[in-house]
């Protein structure tokens, strides 16, 4: 196992190609849940968990189930690939359901705080996006690399959304022109954040 490669993959997806700020994935929760730092962090943790589990499970489905059934029944490993997208979204939806039940039982305050955003993780493109990238990229064709990539993606998401929440808590006290209040100023701040993250370009490559 190449430990150096794992670190490169992790830094690559968490900082250099941050899913939110360079890949534009998960923008909806990035705008919706980034008002308070603690909530943003909680959301980030939930997403990290779902992303890691879904990344591993979808990898297993493609490399295990699809390739095996495809080879056994159709004599073509790629025969079932047209079901990929449907399978991915089904896995993610059931994982979110799982997290929801777990939080409801063990962390009711957190569950209350997430409110409507928890089921919305299903439609968080960061998760489906990470699964699709894992499927596409040559370096995530083995399980450990894929899991590292998924986890790194979740950490990157948490980082971006928490930084954003920290900034937004301060924006509350500043005098923003009326038309820009809310989404407008958040976008502009995200643009500047994204510029900052571009400074990581080249690290780990």
């Amino acid at each position: 196992m190449d430990f150096g490669l794992l670190i490169t993959i992790f830094i690559g997806v968490a900082l250099v190609n941050n899913l939110v700020l360079a890949g534009f994935l998960g923008i909806c929760p990035f705008l919706g849940v980034s008002r308070k730092v603690d909530m943003a962090f909680g959301m980030g943790c939930a997403v990290t968990f779902v992303i890691t589990v879904s990344g591993v499970v979808t990898w297993l489905i493609v490399h295990g189930l699809f390739n095996w059934v495809g080879t056994a029944v159709f004599e073509n490993a790629g025969a079932l690939y047209f079901l990929k997208y449907v399978a991915f979204i089904m896995v993610i939806a059931s994982m979110v359901q799982l997290v929801e039940m777990y939080l409801k039982k063990f962390f009711p305050p957190l569950y209350e705080a997430f409110g409507v955003f928890l089921p919305l993780i299903t439609t968080n493109c960061a998760i489906l996006g990470a699964c699709l990238y894992i499927d596409m990229k040559p370096e995530t064709q083995n399980l450990i690399n894929a899991a590292t990539y998924a986890f790194g993606g979740g950490v990157g998401f948490t980082l971006a959304i928490t930084i954003m929440a920290g900034i937004r808590e301060h924006i509350n006290f500043s005098d923003v022109p009326k038309p820009l209040q809310g989404a407008g100023i958040t976008m502009l701040v995200a643009g500047i954040l994204s510029l900052a993250f571009m400074g990581f370009t080249g690290i780990g490559k």
Binding site: L21, A22, G23, F24, P177, K178, P179, L180, A183, G184, I185, T186, M187, L188, A190, G191, I192, S194, L195, M198
Partner: peptide, 25 residues
């Protein structure tokens, strides 16, 4: 070049949303 890179997307959309809100108000 910044306009076709990620930051340009955020900045342009922020300004466009601002303009739309301004026209609506």
């Amino acid at each position: 070049v910044i306009m076709v890179l990620p930051p340009g997307a955020f900045l342009t959309l922020g300004v466009v949303i601002g303009v739309v809100n301004w026209i609506r108000s």
